[in-house]
């Protein structure tokens, strides 16, 4: 679990959250969005719309799926949520894990921390759930677990895709001098059917990303889903059948040091003594 919080701040925020709902500073922190961590690491020609979407001038579309992929397929699931609303096929997007950031907090991971079954929709259960969700944001835990990632991402990720799409349409409308309502999107492009003109997302990404996010994000009707609710091929399968270096053990960094655990060959036995003098004399 990647928590980027500091103990002191956490303690303060838990304290603030614990004072039932009415503390102004707590409310302020809860509503204030976290900064977009992708701003700090954009490539040349890349623009970011929110912590989940980056689009390059060359129309490379990158979706950030900020949960640990351990075979459960979450990187594919989260990417589909964004791609659905962004109107691109899964084969058109690059999916990255993204940096460790408060922005990727998992609210749902704590929501089910209360003593209620997930299907319990009583008022008490719901109240505890939303309370713990608030705590989740205060703690800003970027965690993966408890079957929470899909529930946590379901609205967030779709909204991220939809907001980016609305901003891209607005920028295209400006550039083509047409009404936004006359524009359609498909597979990474914006079409103006009456004139036959079209623009790639990449062509308007820089302008679109500088616009204010839409005040109202419109999500697709379930009936209009092209990807969600349908079986998808895993985005990580090709890497996994070709032996690509995608695991922790495959990471090589400059001047990386290696450590290993000296384990007892027998269960339950504890070390009696350890001579660390040679290890302590090592220079790094």
């Amino acid at each position: 679990m990647a928590s980027v919080g500091k103990i002191a701040r956490r303690t303060f925020l838990i304290g603030a959250a614990a004072v039932a709902g009415g503390v102004a500073v707590g409310y302020y922190y809860y509503r204030k969005p976290f900064p977009n961590p992708l701003e700090a690491e954009l490539g040349k020609g890349e623009a970011t719309f929110n912590p989940y979407v980056k689009i390059g001038a060359d129309n490379t579309i990158t979706i950030v799926a900020p949960r640990a992929e351990m075979g459960q397929g979450i990187s594919t699931t989260l990417a589909v949520m964004v791609a659905e609303e962004l109107d691109v096929g899964l084969d058109r997007v690059k999916v990255e894990h993204g940096p460790a950031s408060y922005a990727y907090y998992n609210a749902a991971i704590l929501e089910e921390g209360g003593p209620f079954a997930f299907f319990d929709e009583s008022m008490t259960a719901q109240a505890v759930r939303s309370g713990l969700g608030v705590v989740g944001k205060f703690l800003a835990l970027q965690g993966t677990g408890g079957s929470a990632s899909t529930r946590d991402g379901f609205d967030k990720m779709r909204q991220a895709g939809a907001a980016a799409r609305q901003m891209l349409i607005a920028a295209a409308a400006q550039k083509l001098g047409v009404a936004a309502a006359d524009l359609e999107t498909a597979d990474g492009s914006i079409l103006h059917k009456p004139s036959g003109k079209s623009l790639t997302y990449g062509a308007v990404a820089a302008v679109a990303a500088a616009m204010a996010p839409p005040a109202e994000v419109r999500l697709k009707d379930r009936a209009d889903w092209k990807l969600l609710g349908k079986p998808q091929k895993r985005i990580d399968m090709l890497a996994k059948v070709t032996g690509a270096p995608i695991f922790g053990i495959d990471v090589r960094l400059p001047d990386m040091l290696y450590g290993t655990v000296k384990m007892s060959p027998r269960f339950w036995s504890r070390p009696v003594k350890a001579d660390l003098s040679r290890a302590e004399k090592m220079t790094v």
């Binding site: 075979g71 399968m237 090709l238 059948v241």
Partner: peptide, 21 residues
């Protein structure tokens, strides 16, 4: 791809993938 890799891709065999090589 080798036919075995191709089949692995089509059957979507891997989950975490660590053992699959």
């Amino acid at each position: 791809l080798h036919p075995v890799q191709q089949a692995w891709l089509e059957e979507q065999v891997a989950q975490c993938g660590y053992c699959q090589a």
